[in-house]
Structure formats: C-alpha cells, structure tokens
Write a protein that binds this DNA or RNA. Structure first.
Lengths: 159, 159
DNA sequence: GTATATGCAAATGTTTTGCAGCTAA
DNA sequence: TTAGCTGCAAAACATTTGCATATAC
C-alpha cells in the first residue's frame, strides 16, 4: 500500500501542518505494515533503517498527528504499549477495532463484523447513550494453538 | 457488599498465600465501591483513611493477587491508568466487560448484554478461534450530555 | 523570513522491584 | 520458627516536554 504524497501534504496543509520527510516515512512504515499493530518503538526501529537520524520523540509526535488526521488507528492490548496501524480504507466514519488475541502465543489478528450495530442501537434505545466508536477485544485460543494442543494430547495418550 | 472473611482466607490458603489486614482492606474497599472502576491510587487513598500506614506498593501487589484469584476485574480506559472493580457474582466463568464511555464528560457506566455470544460462536466457526473472554468498550455521548447539548442549542436559538 | 518541526536530554507519571524488617500461621 | 508479607525508596518503563537548532513554505 503506497502513500499518496500529495494527498498527505494537502491533508496536513488543511490543518496548518507542514509536510516533512519524517512524517512521510512514519506514515509509509505504517502503510507498508497493515494489520501489524506496531508499537512506537517498533515504528522507530523500522524508520531508523533508512533514516538513522530520526528521534523517538518525533515518532511519538507523528503518530499523535496521524491519529488526529484519522489516518491511523490506536490499539491497546493491555501489554503496556500503545500500538498503531494504518486505518482501513473501507470504513472511514466508524473506526472498528475487533481483535482476536491468543492467550497462548499472543498472536493478534483482526476481523470485521457488523453485528455490533444491533448492540449499539440497543444501547441507544435502552440507556440513551449515543455510540460514536467502539472497541472489541476477544481473548482466547487461536486455531494454531488449539491444533497444537490437540496434537500434544494425542501424543501423550499414545505414550 | 460485605466481604466473607473466611472464604477469602481459605481462597488465599488454597494457593499458599496468607491473609493479611492489608489484603482484606483493599478487597473491602473494592467491594464497597462496585462499578466504580478505581485506579490503584484511588484505592490507596481510600485504604489510607483507616490504615494510614499502608504503602502504595502493597496496593499494587494486592490488586495483582486479587486478579489472580479472580475476585476483581481489570479495566483499561486508555487514560493512562489501570482500573479495578469487584467481579460481579452472577457471571463467574465469563468476565464480561461492557463499558459506556462518554466522550464529553468522561463518565463510565457498565451494562450487561448477552448478544456477544452470537459473535463469539461466529468467530469460532469462521476463524477457528476459541473465545474465552472479551472486552467491549463503546465510546459516545451519555444521556446527560446529549440532553445538555439539546438544551444549549435551544437556548442559543432563543437568543 | 518566520512559523513550525526536529533531536536530544531531561522530566513525567504509573507501576515494579530490592531489601531489611515485620507478621501470620 | 519461618515462609511469606510489608513499607520504603529506588528503579524501570513508556511516553511527554523544554529548548535550541533546523527546516518547510
């Protein structure tokens, strides 16, 4: 996924920001790693490969800016890091975070589902709360870990 | 909601822990403030009223212990604090965190809903991911804020 | 030219940890 | 008695901020 330089530039200009090499590179790293939920440190390491002079503080300042511009999403997996990933193109108005977090291997994958719209309208009617955005995290065991466990069990029974 | 001292004691004993005044008081504070999603600091302040000699580190160590014993739940509202609240009695196997977070006044309220079970079984079938626990956060505007906004608008029109 | 952005280092603020003394069992 | 717990202070950690310099426009 390539970054549209000119669109980025005019998006920045709209809000009085300047286009810089650092901002472009941070956005590019995120665009090149979709659904990778990178931490600031991870973004920093990848940016440094081609831009060794960049500072970690700039990465932190840039992700905040990109969040403001709604170009990226923030994900909190409760492991002490805030993570970022490029926003999906299809669903611009509603940011939908649905993440499957494996409690064994820690792998995180995303999925899409519109089922929660029913929940949201229910909340509106029952409690008078108007939902603007939501975040859903499902914790459990991924396919791979479930299969491994089954294999181990079979092996144990054989012994 | 009073804490059952003896049950707490035997629960600790089961895992080789000791019952202490500090642990009991921390649990009591959480039991007396259901659905209050207190931070460690807030728990500390409330505990100190009757136990001025307690240390903040003990509060941190105790909430970790209570989480392990599944007596309390952890909530992360992405505001830089980890919050804790007493676990609800009815739903022991599944910890269900559903929180409504007002983007205007910051008020947090909880609600209960079993709708997500359908989502979970769907995820199991489609992706092979076995869901054990989930967390849902809905961001939006609470009833009070919506009403205030409406009132303000009416007043502006009148002027 | 000037307003904005950067890099560095220092500060921040929450949470964790080391350790000597204390307490429950 | 002794294994486990506590309080204190220091450390650890991700993230933010101040400031002088550099850069975009």
């Amino acid at each position: 996924m390539a970054v549209d330089r000119d669109r980025f530039k005019s998006l920045l200009k709209e809000k009085g920001f300047k286009m810089t090499r650092q901002r472009l590179v941070v956005l590019e790293v995120l665009a090149e790693n979709p659904e990778q939920h990178l931490t600031a440190e991870e973004i920093y390491e990848r940016v440094k490969v081609e831009n060794p002079d960049i500072g970690l503080a700039t990465v932190y300042r840039t992700v905040q800016l990109l969040l403001e511009l709604e170009l990226i999403d923030r994900i909190n997996l409760d492991d002490g890091f805030i993570r970022y990933e490029i926003g999906s193109i299809e669903e611009k108005e509603h940011h939908r975070y649905h993440h499957l977090i494996c409690m064994r291997c820690g792998k995180v994958s995303a999925f899409q589902d519109d089922m929660l719209e029913a929940l949201e309208s229910g909340v509106r009617e029952a409690l008078g709360f108007q939902v603007i955005d939501h975040e859903v995290k499902l914790y459990g065991y991924c396919k791979d870990c479930l299969e491994k466990e089954t294999n181990n069990r079979l092996q144990e029974e054989r012994v």
